[in-house]
Structures are given as structure tokens and as C-alpha cells.
């Protein structure tokens, strides 16, 4: 091509020399910043996990010693098991609640906007505030639950003093915080389903339960995947809620990996081992997310795109 007319301005006409770089100039600043900070932290954390640190943050390279020590540490093993059960229970309960809320928010006609708006409120309450609120719901003297129990003539419970009950309360607080977002995601999935399908299924003689399992559930699979990622991400990295609710107690009954990590690094000043727990959290969460994406989102891309 031998063009002599000068290019007047940038834009789709294209001969502008800068043009090929425009998208990169747009996309890269944000990415470099994010990668700079988070990548720096992740890499720094991995390096830190290979070092032993003393109280003055002097580091000596020790290879995998921290990993060996941490994995052999019974307190870590307990925290890990506790985290896994916390996550599993949270996911099961959280998805059940999200699905129920989503279905109800879909079905309700009068005041639909109000209920939807209300349902998302907890999402905007900080983890710390959530924890404080739940503490005053369940606190022994003057808590909401015990006050109600008293009015019913029932004995007060030491909710946060009992290891099992405290664990349950922590899961409840976690669900309170994470369910709203998940249920709106699911609601979005349910709304994209063509209403004719329900009518067709009803004419075919399916009852509501069959309709849910045969029509709704398969069609919202991608959304289910997204909300599963959200729910398990939040549960795995729950930190502020539990820290402010129970500080890991009583008797370490709610000491999750994230809490133990904080304890190791910031209380015992063992940053090397703390960093090992960081790697553990990172790997678990990434693997879990990838599994969900593989199962739910990738496998059903056709659906989600058709739904848009």
C-alpha cells in the first residue's frame, strides 16, 4: 500500500501508528498495578514461607522446613480439619439458604423490589460489624436469643462459651454475610429461564419438585457454579467475622486456618510459618475455584451465553 494522504486522527481507519498500542495502553496500567501489588505479595509470601524469621524479622533460608513443621503441628492439623468442616457446612447451608431465598424472591410478586433490596443489606455490613451484631444476638446476658428464651421461660444458654455452639454461631454469622449475594446470583439465573418451559413441564405432568430438579437446576448450573465459588471463597477466607466474634475460641473451637495464620504471624511473630498458611489458603482456594469453573461454568458455557 502506498498511501500519501495523512491520517487525520486516531480511530477505526487505522493507519495511525499508535493504534496497535491503544488497547494495551488502556488495559495494562490497571493490570500492572494489580499484578505489581498482589503478585509482589504472593511471591513475597512464598519466599517468606521458605525462610525462618526471628522477632526482628531477620530471615534465614531454611527450604521446606516451615512446611514440614507446620504440617506436623497438631494445632495446624486441627485448624485445617476445622476449616474444612466449617467450609463444607457453610457451603451446604449457604447454598440451601441462597437457593430458598432466590426461589422465594423469584416467586414473590407484591413488594418484590423491597424484599430484594432488603435481602442484600447484609452484603454491605462489614465483617467486623457482622461479628459484633452476632455477638450481641448470642451474648449470654442481654443477648437477643437469651432474652427471647427468657420471655418464653426457657433457660439461658452460653452460646459463645460452648465450643460446639460457638462454632455453629460462627457458621451462622458467615452465612448471614455471604448468602445475600449468592442468592441474587441464583435469582439472576432463575430469571433467565423461559417461563414457557415451566408451563410446558406442567402440561407434561411434572410437579413443582420435579420441575425444580429437572428444569430449574440444570438451567442455572453456571450461576450455581458462580455462587458456589463465592460461597466457598468467602468461607475459606473467613477471617474478620470469626476474629471479632470469638477470636478463635472458646478452647480454639473456632480457630480456622486464617485465624491461626494471624496468630502465628502477628502474635507469635513467626512469619515464616504464617506464610506457609498463606500458601495453604491460596492453593486450596485456587484449586477449589478451578474445579467449580471446570464443572459448572466451562461445561455449560452454551447455556450461559444463550441466556444473556
Amino acid at each position: 500500500m502506498s498511501h500519501t494522504t495523512p491520517m487525520v486522527e486516531d480511530g477505526p481507519t487505522g493507519a495511525d501508528r499508535l493504534k496497535p498500542f491503544v488497547p494495551y495502553l488502556l488495559v495494562l496500567p490497571g493490570l500492572l498495578f494489580v499484578m505489581g501489588v498482589l503478585g509482589y505479595a504472593v511471591v513475597g509470601g512464598i519466599i517468606l514461607s521458605l525462610n525462618e524469621t526471628d522477632m526482628f524479622m531477620n530471615k534465614t533460608f531454611v527450604g521446606l522446613k516451615n512446611y514440614i513443621d507446620v504440617f506436623a503441628d497438631p494445632r495446624f492439623q486441627a485448624a485445617m480439619l476445622r476449616t474444612l468442616s466449617f467450609v463444607v457446612i457453610s457451603i451446604v447451608l449457604g447454598i440451601f439458604m441462597s437457593m430458598s431465598f432466590a426461589l422465594v424472591l423469584y416467586k414473590v410478586v407484591r413488594g418484590r423490589r423491597f424484599f430484594r433490596g432488603l435481602s442484600l443489606v447484609p452484603y454491605f455490613v462489614s465483617g467486623i460489624a457482622t461479628a459484633v451484631m452476632f455477638r450481641f444476638i448470642f451474648t449470654t446476658s442481654g443477648g437477643f436469643v437469651n432474652t427471647v428464651l427468657a420471655q418464653l421461660g426457657l433457660p439461658a444458654q452460653s452460646w459463645l462459651g460452648d465450643p460446639t455452639l460457638a462454632f455453629v454461631v460462627a457458621i451462622m454469622a458467615n452465612c448471614w454475610f455471604m448468602v445475600p449475594f449468592a442468592s441474587l446470583i441464583l435469582l439472576g439465573g432463575i430469571q433467565t429461564i423461559d417461563k414457557d418451559l415451566y408451563d410446558a413441564a406442567a402440561i407434561d405432568g411434572a410437579n413443582p419438585i420435579q420441575i425444580f430438579f429437572r428444569i430449574t437446576l440444570p438451567l442455572i448450573k453456571p450461576m450455581l457454579g458462580v455462587s458456589l465459588i463465592w460461597v466457598s471463597y468467602i468461607s475459606f477466607s473467613t477471617f474478620d467475622i470469626v476474629l471479632a466474634l470469638t477470636s478463635g475460641g472458646p478452647l480454639k473451637a473456632t480457630e480456622l486456618v486464617s485465624i491461626y495464620m494471624y496468630e502465628l504471624a502477628f502474635r507469635q511473630l513467626n512469619f515464616g510459618q504464617g506464610a506457609v498458611l498463606m500458601v495453604v489458603l491460596l492453593v486450596f482456594n485456587t484449586v477449589l475455584s478451578l474445579i467449580y469453573i471446570k464443572i459448572f461454568v466451562m461445561g455449560d458455557r452454551r447455556h450461559s451465553e444463550a441466556g444473556k
Binding site: L38, A41, V42, G44, G45, L48, Y233, F236, S237, F239, D240, S258, M261, Y262, A265, F266, F271, G274, A275, L277, M278, V279, L281, L282, N285
Partner: peptide
């Protein structure tokens, strides 16, 4: 998980 980054 953002918490995990607090240590490094």
C-alpha cells in the same frame, strides 16, 4: 483470599 496476603 485477601487475608492470606496480610502476612507477606
Amino acid at each position: 483470599p485477601r487475608v492470606s496476603l496480610i502476612v507477606p
